[in-house]
């Protein structure tokens, strides 16, 4: 009886699946895994609101760029922006989708989240292996109230290529000339030392397991795993906590006005309350799409995301784009994407 009911509902589900596939328009996208949770939630909500479907495949930024260049998807997504000359070469438009960011986290007995303060240079020195013990004078100097243990620092990094790593090392390169020169930037780099965890969950697991460790994860992982976050000194010299407000401030204070095709990495943003390692995810779309129907639908989807997707994004640990930036993006669409 139960089996029969199960088969019946299965058939119904199948039928509705087929039917909805015929009726509504569908959009396909592929790229960065960073936005995958948000995309999934958005597309479910969007389908409820408009009956249109958005299929997003989390295949990595590199894959997303390749797919949109080949024209096999309506939009691609990348954690690193493409430079304007490359966009021109492949006839692509580019705009930000949502803000995320990177939070350094530590495993130190007796130290609460947000209490430990670090500067960008110090963070680079730790990852370079120059500062190797928690009682190093360079750390205690800016943390006068904390009793830091005599314990070696265990460095943890992301072993898989990721936008998180890209933005983290981009920031280190901006604040430390030595980092820029000896390590550089990329989705994977040659780490001077330490242990690599696979994915945010891998880094979070390592940091929890290893006493005296420091790692870096996306904002949502820092809060949901109850890891000890670090307060960072920003470009204005102020120590800030990783919060929605400080991420949004980073995005609004960044100089988008002069960024052609939104080619801007918002690490080390200038505002006094800006989180220094904030990041944006980028959407790539062809200027002359093979299916103008899909491209139009994709724009409708992102228009909806900017207007109605904020709450869902915030709940998942992302930070919605500031209104001024959204206005700039819609102006950019009007001038560049005339389908």
């Amino acid at each position: 009886m139960i089996v029969k009911a199960g088969i019946h509902s299965l058939l119904l589900a199948l039928a509705s699946l087929l039917a909805s596939g015929v009726q509504a328009a569908s959009v396909s996208g592929a790229g960065a895994s960073f936005v995958y949770p948000a995309m999934t939630k958005w597309s479910a909500d969007y389908q409820k609101a408009t009956a249109n479907r958005v299929n997003y495949q989390s295949i990595g930024s590199g894959g997303g760029i390749a797919q949109v260049k080949a024209g096999t998807v309506d939009f691609g997504s990348s954690d690193a922006p493409l430079p304007p000359d490359e966009l021109a070469k492949f006839q692509l438009a580019q705009f930000p989708s949502v803000i995320g960011g990177v939070v350094p986290v530590v495993n130190l007995a007796g130290i609460e989240s947000g209490k430990l303060k670090l500067t960008g240079r110090l963070l680079a020195a730790i990852y370079l292996g120059h500062v190797a013990n928690w009682n190093d004078p360079a750390i205690s100097e800016i943390n006068p109230g904390l009793s830091l243990p005599n314990q070696p620092i265990r460095v943890i990094y992301r072993s898989d290529g990721s936008g998180t790593t890209f933005n983290f090392v981009n920031y280190l390169s901006k604040v430390s000339p030595e980092w820029k020169q000896s390590v550089g930037e990329g989705t994977t780099v040659r780490w001077p030392g330490g242990f690599g965890g696979k994915g945010n969950e891998g880094v979070a697991a390592y940091v929890k397991q290893v006493a005296g460790s420091i790692g870096y994860v996306e904002l949502s992982y820092a809060t949901s795993n109850q890891l000890t976050a670090v307060a960072m000194q920003n470009a204005a010299g102020v120590f800030v906590q990783p919060t929605d407000a400080s991420f949004q401030s980073a995005a609004s204070s960044a100089n988008w006005k002069d960024a052609k095709d939104f080619y801007l990495i918002i690490t080390n943003a200038p505002a006094a309350d800006a989180w220094p390692i904030a990041a944006t995810n980028f959407i790539l779309m062809p200027l002359a799409p093979k299916k103008s129907e899909g491209a139009k639908e994709a724009l409708n989807f992102f228009r909806w995301v900017y207007k109605d997707g904020d709450a869902a994004a915030s709940k998942l640990g992302y930070v919605p784009l500031p209104d001024a930036l959204v206005a700039q993006i819609e102006a950019y669409w009007a001038s560049r994407l005339k389908h």
């Binding site: 930024s61 072993s159 898989d160 290529g161």
Partner: peptide, 23 residues
């Protein structure tokens, strides 16, 4: 000490390998 293996390196880096030389 930590190390890596061929299969672990591929699993870690392939999805986000931008450069053709990396792939």
């Amino acid at each position: 000490e930590p190390g890596t293996s061929i299969s672990a390196t591929i699993a870690n880096e392939f999805a986000e390998a931008f450069a053709d030389s990396h792939r």
